[in-house]
Design a protein around this nucleic acid. Structure first.
Length: 422
RNA sequence: GGAGAGAUGGCCGAGUAGGUCGAAGGCGCUCGCCUGCUAAGCGAGUAUACUGGGAAACCGGUAUCGAGGGUUCGAAUCCCUCUCUCUCCGCCA
């Protein structure tokens, strides 16, 4: 959510910066609703002040029959207040409706661009392997090895669900442990294991709601949502809290499954593990001092890259342009891993700085000094990494001509010493 | 699922015949004094949001005692609904 007071004074600037995302009219109606709200608020509060004052006077009058005039007068005042507050509530809701659906302002360092094609490569690491044979795609490799069973996944649930078995299941579990160990032991994150379902307030806090409900799996009665990313429960850990300055940055690493409807992506990545309704992810989340968030995003991105480096998987880092960053993000780096079977780079991690956008929605603050006013923290998060897609990358990059797949050396301790999946 | 108890400020904890309660008291914390050091002691201060004025320091208004409604001139205190927590029984990983 953007700061109302900032918008009041910088509406043109805000609209100009929002326009770089594509689309327009995000803030239509803000000006009128805001001034209407202020007018109603002032009037209502003036009347309440009067009522409070007269009520005190009534309290001081021993003989209530002497107070009848005032009581009758205040009865009218109370009715006016009630009517006014109802109108105010409506205006407030409309205003919130706008504010909650306006995306974040792109950071000044975010490249301006209309779409994915204008993202900017920042750096790359590793060399795509050269094969003396035609590289296969991971679904063929996985099915032939009997470690990925897409047909049975579809039988059990439906499209975009997969059954892992044997070394495949073990590989998924090994990667989760490997990543969590790395981030907690080497990078200083505290491991957390949050609920996989959250309520509406949590989804609103990080920005999935109210605008993107169709992307979520929703439970009825009680109304809970399956998390689309650990970002949601982990960021909301500190919703409504004031953090200690000295505890910043607060850094969490969490493994969770993620559930996404993938509405609107029919026909895209229909085969294989790339786009599933349920997938596993290890997520990194930071609560940072505003002045440090830029540097913390760089560190978090480097932490995610480290996973790929240790697995010896080639990748590149892209700065997403203004037209491609997510709703809540001010700045995003995507890490794209090389997939020989598909002969292209595919996103395996997305690391973003949200500035105070989520913190304002979720009320996550800190005090610079013991006595100073609370300020909003900045939130940062990124995948470290998407586990299913890491399996894809390993299968495709470590495949052999005979169809077997080597296990990356760093992973072998987590695979019971297994060197090769045959 | 059945029966009961409870939700108050950073924490603990008063406050039920409705009024001067943003809320006693204690702890914690901050500043000052005192003290050879530490402990103790003394004094002052110590919620948040919105809003009006002010360059600012700051001053004023409104709201907030789990959440949302209601009664009333006036509610932490009365009524209704919901949520959460705890205890006992049942069930269960």
């Amino acid at each position: 959510m953007l700061d109302m007071k900032f918008l009041r004074e910088n509406l043109d600037e805000a609209e100009r910066r929002l326009a770089t995302r594509g689309g327009a009219g995000f803030l239509d109606g803000f000006r009128e609703l805001d001034s209407k709200r202020l007018a109603l608020l002032r009037e209502s509060e003036t009347l309440k002040a009067l009522r409070n004052k007269v009520s005190d006077e009534i309290a001081g009058i021993k003989d209530k029959s002497q107070a009848q005039d005032k009581i009758v007068e205040m009865r009218t005042v109370s009715q006016r207040i009630k009517a006014m507050d109802e109108e105010l509530k409506q205006v407030d809701e409309e205003l919130q409706g706008i504010l909650l659906t306006v995306p974040n302002l792109p950071d000044p360092s975010t490249p301006i661009g209309a779409s994915e094609s204008e993202n900017v490569e920042i750096r790359s690491w590793g060399v795509p392997p050269a094969f003396g044979f035609a590289a296969k795609e991971h679904w063929d490799i996985g099915e032939q090895l009997g470690i990925l069973d897409f047909e049975r996944g579809a039988k059990l649930t439906g499209a975009r669900f997969t059954l892992y078995r044997g070394a495949g299941a073990r590989l998924e579990r090994a990667l989760i442990s490997f990543m969590l160990d790395l981030h907690t032991e080497q990078h200083g994150y505290v491991e957390v294991l949050p609920p996989f379902m959250v309520n509406r307030d949590s989804m609103t806090g990080t920005g999935q709601l109210p605008k993107f409900e169709e992307d979520l799996f929703k439970m009825q009665d009680p109304e809970y949502f399956l998390i689309p990313t650990a970002e949601v429960p982990v960021t909301n850990i500190h919703r409504g809290e004031i953090l200690k300055r000295n505890d910043l940055p607060v850094c969490y690493a969490a493994y969770t499954p993620c559930f996404r409807r993938e509405a609107g992506s029919y026909g895209k990545d229909t085969r294989g593990l790339i786009r599933q309704h349920q997938f596993n992810k290890v997520e990194l989340v930071k609560f940072s001092h505003p002045a440090e968030s830029e540097a913390e995003l760089e560190k978090l991105t480097a932490n995610a890259e480290k996973v790929l480096q240790l697995l010896d998987l080639p990748y590149r880092v892209m700065a997403l342009c203004s037209g491609d960053i997510g709703f809540s993000a001010a700045k995003t780096y995507d890490i794209e891993v090389w997939l020989p079977g598909q002969n292209c780079y595919r996103e395996i991690s997305s690391c973003s700085n949200f500035g105070d956008f989520q913190a304002r929605r979720a009320g996550i603050r800190f005090r610079e000094e013991e006595k100073s006013k609370p300020e909003f923290v900045h939130t940062i998060n990124g995948s470290g990494l998407a586990v299913g897609r890491t399996v894809v990358a390993i299968l495709e990059n470590y495949q052999q001509e005979d169809g077997s797949v080597f296990v990356p050396a760093a992973l072998r301790p987590y695979m019971g010493g297994l060197e090769r999946i045959v």
